[in-house]
């Protein structure tokens, strides 16, 4: 690990882990990809929750249930035989190209990190996944409403409630974080988009199918880009055009 880590706690219960998580300088540890990459010197205590969260994925036509300790790779292994075209694979593959790499990202960690350029997270926002969160007791909320507090123990989404799902990511390399990622679904006569990338946060937009046109696409792009950050891979004007292109492609595909 890194020198600032003074202790690694192995709590016996989620309650214990939740209390430890409240302490300053503490961080939950599961897969460790982000933690090890960042080596944040202000983190002094790691709370190892590997024994407290499950790491399997269940998938059928009705529901996909992902335990927080499941890795992106295990998700691919489980879901691929059932749904070989699952659009989350692109992002999962980019995050962990090899089964053999030591630290594979967990879904719990991916959600907990709450990074707007996470492919998995944009996908989960798009499908309006349910999170099971432990904050002294367990409760289930929409991922779109989670404030980041508590320990994620399970993620679930329901393909049977969704008529179609698409994901579009634009990055300079497949392995690089996306500049723009748009996840989209069609359900109950409307299109729902989750938009992330080099942005401050993931945003969601809904359009009724009968309002789907150039103007609605342009409106979504114009609003979404407000949360984006200009950088060396593109100005805001360019990112707005990328969002519009992604939304259009997704909408047409959905």
């Amino acid at each position: 690990m890194w020198y600032s880590i003074k202790s690694i706690q192995t709590p016996q219960t989620l309650d214990e882990a939740f209390l430890q998580q409240q302490q300053e300088g503490s961080a939950l540890f599961s897969g460790g990809s982000y933690l090890v990459a960042e080596k944040n010197p202000s983190i002094r205590t790691l709370i190892d929750i590997n024994g407290l969260v499950d790491n399997f994925v269940n998938a059928d036509d009705k529901a996909v249930t992902i335990q927080a300790g499941a890795t992106l790779q295990s998700f691919m292994d489980t879901v691929k035989p059932i749904n070989p075209n699952c659009r989350l694979f692109d992002g999962a593959r980019a995050s962990c190209p090899s089964k053999n790499i030591r630290n594979q990202r967990t879904f719990g960690g991916e959600v907990g990190q709450n990074r707007p350029n996470s492919d998995a997270l944009v996908f989960l926002h798009a499908v309006d996944a349910d999170l099971t969160i432990y904050t002294g007791s367990e409760r289930t909320i929409s991922i779109r409403e989670w404030d980041g507090n508590g320990i994620v123990t399970q993620i679930a989404y329901y393909p049977n409630k969704i008529e179609s799902i698409e994901l579009q990511r634009f990055s300079v390399l497949q392995s690089a974080p996306a500049i723009v990622i748009v996840g989209g679904i069609r359900r109950s006569g409307q299109l729902e988009f989750a938009i992330g990338g080099t942005a401050h946060k993931i945003q969601t937009f809904n359009v009724m199918m009968n309002n789907w046109n150039k103007n609605s696409i342009s409106e979504i792009a114009k609003n979404a880009v407000r949360q984006f950050i200009p950088d060396h891979f593109g100005s805001l004007a360019y990112k707005e055009s990328l969002i519009a292109t992604a939304v259009k492609r997704l909408g047409d595909a959905l």
């Binding site: 990459a37 593959r93 980019a94 190209p97 090899s98 300079v172 390399l173 497949q174 392995s175 690089a176 974080p177």
Partner: peptide, 10 residues
Amino acid sequence: EHYHIYTSID
């Protein structure tokens, strides 16, 4: 994360 080199999947 911000300096993008080609990896095996790219």
